[in-house]
Each structure stands twice: as structure tokens, then as C-alpha cells.
Design a protein around this nucleic acid. Structure first.
Lengths: 190, 190
DNA sequence: CGCGCCGTTGAGGCTCCTCAACCCGGGTGG
DNA sequence: CCACCCGGGTTGAGGAGCCTCAACGGCGCG
């Protein structure tokens, strides 16, 4: 647990090593994972101005992170135009990803959601050089995938089973390899 | 139709009068409405840098909008620090709203989704002074509510019927009044 | 060895979808 | 003027998809 929903913080967090998930949680335990955080990610974009974040940040493996005082962060942004540009670009990109998540949760069925989630995560890891050929570290528990796709762990298990049976992915002991990328894209849909 | 998904535009659009919806559409016709746009709203935050927006913007009543050349928009932002601040705040707020939409679509049932949608829209209209006591103009078609909540029009109709039967809302001829606000909040949940 | 956590599998049920029929109001043309 | 159609909303029947509940096996750990 890196950051809890009602915690006050004067710092901007930046993940250095390991993976984490950023989610919104309801009092009754239901929650929705918004994104998987990788090394280099800034932990919250959403509450850069409001120090009281509504987010629950949970590490899914041993992780380290750096705390940057909020004012230092903004000072850096103001000083370095290129960093500022990168920040704005990322801001917009995150918004786009969030909207696409809404589309997926609202309009796609279970198998498509799982396929998209795996595809997105795999592409992100490959982009950042965290993958060896097509295999990536996959420390997420079943309940994380369920919370990211709006399903139950039970049904998630059944969908994953199907993807493995059809030789689309190969998943064992915290490591996932995409065996049939075209097929995975096909299932994930447009 | 104000803006179609694959249209190229050098302008930033700003809604002046009327209401519109911003959505992401799939080739097969399924779509997810991300937000309802009111007068004063800037039409796309998501593609301020990439002129090719993936969004479908549809007016739901007679509307007028203003086109601002992209570079003029950024020039204005650079010149006026207070406008820039407001822009950043709104950017972050939109992201927060988007994430909450994902939570709703992923983890809430049909009635809760409908209730939240109506509640959010009503609050937004009230905030901006578009409401007389508790009644607001409600030009949305059934299919819009369905696309905003990830349901079918048929099921949306049944849920709305339930809300009317329980005297939570009163909806007739393009005008909606919230009769029992506490109950509506209760249904919408935390 | 016992225990707890995690994933798997199956049975049954509820929610929401699909399909279809129907009504209504508004336009359009005879 | 009425007949007709057409888009939008309503309602019901039946079914698919996903959830709930429960039992079980594997694994790490005390």
C-alpha cells in the first residue's frame, strides 16, 4: 500500500522500481483499477493540485518510489519548457487512455476486456524495454485483473483459461508470453 | 454532428449554446458517451495537440459553437496565467470525472448508473445556472442515456420507469425535475 | 503437519440483452 | 381531410452472460 484514499500528501510520488496499480475504491470494497503503474510513472496526475487524493495506490510487487515535494515539482515544470511539454502530452494521453477504458467497460464483453487489458499492458512493457521477446513479468493477481476489467475473479479465471486453451497467451508463475499476437489483437477488437 | 471521428481540424471548438455529447465510437456502431457538453465547454481536451481527434461530437439540440484557431488558443494560454491555471484545473478535473465514469461502468449496476448520470448532469446544470428550482432541460434521447451508461435503450427505459414510479424524478417532454434529491443520491451511492 | 491464500471448476441464479410487438406524435403525400 | 409512415418510447418473453456460492487442489509458510 503506497497511498491510501483519504491520505493527505504534500508530495508527488514517482515509481522507481516494481509495479503498482492505481485505483478508485468504494467503501463497500468494490473498486476499479484505472491503470497499471510502471517504473518512471508519476503516481497521481489526478490530484496534482488537490493534495487529498481519492486514489488507492497498491504495489503488486516489491517496489521503490521517490517523493518529490509538490512545489519542487511545479518549479521544475516552470523552469524546463521541454519537461513541461512532456508533462502536458502525458496528461492528454492519460485522459485518452481513461476514456478508452470507459469505452471498454461500457461496451465490450468479458473476453474482449481481458484481451485488451493484457494487450495494453504488454505493449506498454515492450515500449519501455521491460520485455524479453514476447514475454513479460506478470505479477498481477487474479483480483487485480478482475478489478481492472470490471469482472469477478472467478469469471476472469475462466476467460484467461480460454485464452490459454486457444494458445493465445502462455501464463505461468508470474510470467506471461503472448504466443499469438495477431489473434490477441483480433479478440481485443478495434 | 459537430465533429466526426476521423476529421482533421486546426481549430479548437467551444460550445456557445445548446447541448452536445462527446463520445468514442466503434466501427460496428457501439459507442460510449464520455461527457455531456454544455455552453461554455471546450469540445476536446483530449486532442489539443493531435488535430486528428478520435471523438464523435453530436449536438442533441440546436447548438452553436465557435472555432478558435489552435495556435490562438495556445497563445491565449501562454499570455494569461489565470486562464492557464483554469485550463490546468479543468484538465485535471476532467481526468477525475473520466476515472469516476470508469468506476461506475465497471462496478455499479444499471439503476445506480442511471441515477449517477442524472445526478451528475443535474448538478452540472444547476452549478452553471441552467436550472429553474430543480427542473432542467433534458433533450437527451433514450439512446444517449444508454450510450452514456453502457446499457441498452430498452433496459434504460425500464430503469427510468422505476425512478419515475418511485417518484424520484419527473420526466416529461424534454424536461426533467428531481423530485427527491436525497433518494436520488441514495440510489447513486457513494 | 496444519493453515491460509490463490486459482480452478461446477451448479444455479440474477441481471441485463435480444427480439418483437405495440403505441404515440409528427410529418408527408394523396 | 385522412392514410400512411417513421422515429422514439414502452412493455413482455425468452435467453445469454456474468455473478454467487461452494468445494477442491496446489503452494508457501509457520
Amino acid at each position: 500500500m503506497i497511498h491510501s484514499p483519504r491520505e493527505f500528501s504534500d508530495y508527488v510520488l514517482c515509481l522507481c522500481a516494481g509495479q503498482a496499480v492505481s485505483s478508485i475504491a468504494l467503501p463497500d470494497g468494490r473498486r476499479q483499477i484505472i491503470e497499471v503503474l510502471l517504473p518512471g510513472d508519476v503516481v497521481y496526475w489526478t490530484d496534482l493540485f488537490e493534495p487529498m487524493s481519492g486514489r488507492l495506490i497498491e504495489a503488486i510487487e516489491n517496489s521503490t518510489y521517490r517523493k518529490i515535494a509538490r512545489k519542487d515539482f511545479f518549479f521544475l515544470l516552470a523552469q524546463q519548457p521541454d519537461i513541461f511539454d512532456a508533462f502536458m502530452q502525458t496528461c492528454i494521453r492519460k485522459k485518452n487512455e481513461g476514456d478508452n477504458l470507459a469505452l471498454t467497460l461500457g461496451r465490450r464483453d468479458a473476453l474482449q476486456r481481458i484481451a485488451r487489458f493484457i494487450l495494453d499492458l504488454a505493449m506498454k512493457l515492450i515500449d519501455r524495454g521491460f520485455a524479453k521477446n514476447q514475454t513479460i513479468r506478470f505479477s498481477l493477481r487474479l483480483r487485480h485483473i478482475a478489478d481492472a476489467t470490471g469482472l469477478t475473479p472467478v469469471h476472469t479465471s475462466k476467460m484467461l483459461r480460454q485464452l490459454r486453451r486457444d494458445r493465445v497467451i502462455d501464463l505461468e508463475s508470474r510470467s506471461l508470453t503472448v504466443s499469438d499476437m495477431p489473434q490477441l489483437r483480433q479478440i481485443a477488437g478495434p
